[in-house]
């Protein structure tokens, strides 16, 4: 499988990365060279093989569904590029 320039633009948008028109051909080439290289996996017979979900045989840890952390909104918003009254500030999203 390979990607065309239209697909490159679509992936970039899905990934929320602005790509300039001038960069599209370069990315098309780079992504295709990686994807073609990955295609050698098609040689492997994976019939009846379960996909790996955990490298270590262990039971998923569980804990009681209780609040164990929190109550420091100032810490949470301290690194925000824009914050006001302990809220994150973003451009208007609803009219």
């Amino acid at each position: 499988m390979s990607v065309d320039q239209k697909t490159v633009r679509r992936i970039a948008h899905l990934a929320r990365i602005k790509v300039s028109e001038a960069d599209v051909p370069r990315l098309e080439g780079e992504l295709n060279s990686i994807l073609h290289w990955i295609e050698q996996l098609n040689e492997v017979n994976v019939e009846g093989v379960e996909p790996l979900t955990s490298v270590v045989a262990m039971k998923m840890k569980k804990r009681a569904d209780v609040v164990t952390d929190g109550n420091y909104p100032q810490d949470v918003t301290r690194n925000a590029p824009a914050a006001e009254d302990e809220f994150f500030m973003v451009p208007k999203v609803v009219e």
Binding site: I38, N42, V44, V46, V49, P51, L52, V55
Partner: peptide, 15 residues
Amino acid sequence: DAYYVRAQKVRTLIK
């Protein structure tokens, strides 16, 4: 399925 699931199956074989 074509990429991610296949890769995770190959990972099982490697393990």
